[in-house]
């Protein structure tokens, strides 16, 4: 008997195979395994978790609050405002003598909040409309897709800036306008999926059992298109964070003294001519780390979930 033969006949192998057969391999279990195999994505999840922890508990390590002015360094920021362990300004101070560490914690909080609240909500809204359009078709479909076509040909920044400038600049308004701007994300693909699925036998079966249309959409179709929603959410979250930062950079974002990554980067970029480079470096680093992590998480999710890419 050859070696390979021997191994195939061994007790060990039989056990492993039996185990593989017993452990159910649902779509999501499969996806989880594939995701965990994507090392960069798993590492990125930990990076993102670290950012979230930083946003939640970072204040505990700050010696200054994010709106308090340190009069000792004001006016001598270039020489004495640099990052230092002695005076408790771990990341230095900003242009107005406020502790940059505390401000970065605050900014991380705002940016992550905007991304992780507004992003998923926008995708859910788009997915719901897409599912309704795909399922019912006809007039409703025409109205929704017509509005979609009009909407995507309006450059979003226009709308964003006008809304922010006119309706105050609170976090809630920010989230609302991001949802309004991004509701088109994922709409078309969900619509397509639903149109494809609605002719399948299990939908007919559900209908024959007397389920209402809405119950069919949310109970039977939704689990089948969940993967699309997850993928789109992973794409939209970094986009939303980026959009928020851009708008804050333009000066129409979150109201002072609250801040966000974009606002901090913008302040840093304005003052870099004076040689206070840390004011740009720290916020930019946090922003970039978040974007890189989200990028690889999205990549891993796409690999794990997209049936087209099954290897």
């Amino acid at each position: 008997m050859t070696d390979a033969r021997k191994r195939l006949n061994s007790r060990d192998f039989a056990d492993t195979v039996a185990e593989e057969m017993i452990v159910s391999r649902s779509f999501w279990a499969d996806a989880r395994r594939r995701f965990l195999g994507h090392r960069l994505a798993v590492f990125s999840v930990f990076m993102l978790l670290a950012l979230v922890l930083f946003a939640l508990f970072g204040h505990a390590f700050a010696r200054w609050s994010f709106e308090e002015i340190d009069w000792n360094v004001l006016g001598r920021i270039k020489t004495e405002g640099a990052p230092s362990l002695d005076n408790g300004h771990w990341f230095g101070v900003d242009e107005l003598g406020r502790d940059l560490y505390a401000r970065v914690v605050q900014g991380t909080r705002t940016s992550l909040m905007v991304g992780f609240v507004a992003g998923p909500l926008a995708v859910l809204l788009g997915a719901t409309l897409g599912a309704l359009a795909g399922y019912f078709g006809g007039r409703l479909d025409q109205i929704i897709t017509g509005f979609y076509t009009i909407w995507i040909s309006i450059p979003y920044i226009i709308f964003f800036v006008v809304w922010q400038a006119f309706f105050g600049r609170s976090l809630t308004q920010m989230i609302i306008v991001i949802i309004i701007v991004n509701w088109t994300a994922g709409l078309l693909i969900v619509r397509g999926q639903v149109m494809m699925l609605k002719h399948r036998e299990f939908v007919d079966a559900a209908r024959m059992l007397g389920m209402s249309d809405l119950a069919i959409i949310f109970k039977h179709l939704a689990p089948n298109i969940l993967w699309v929603i997850v993928i789109y959410t992973s794409i939209v979250i970094p986009e939303v964070i980026m959009a928020e930062s851009l708008v804050s950079f333009l000066g129409v974002g979150i109201q002072e003294p609250n801040t966000s990554w974009g606002a901090l980067i913008s302040e840093g970029a304005r003052t870099m001519t004076f040689g206070t480079l840390w004011q740009l470096a720290f916020p930019a680093a946090f922003f970039v780390i978040a974007q890189v992590s989200l990028y690889y998480i999205g990549d891993g999710l796409r690999d794990a979930l997209d049936p087209k890419d099954r290897r």
Binding site: M242, F249, G262, A269, V288, V292, Y295
Partner: peptide
């Protein structure tokens, strides 16, 4: 792709 224009420009 990770450096958007408002990080790249400064």
């Amino acid at each position: 792709q990770i450096f958007p224009n408002f990080v790249l420009a400064p």
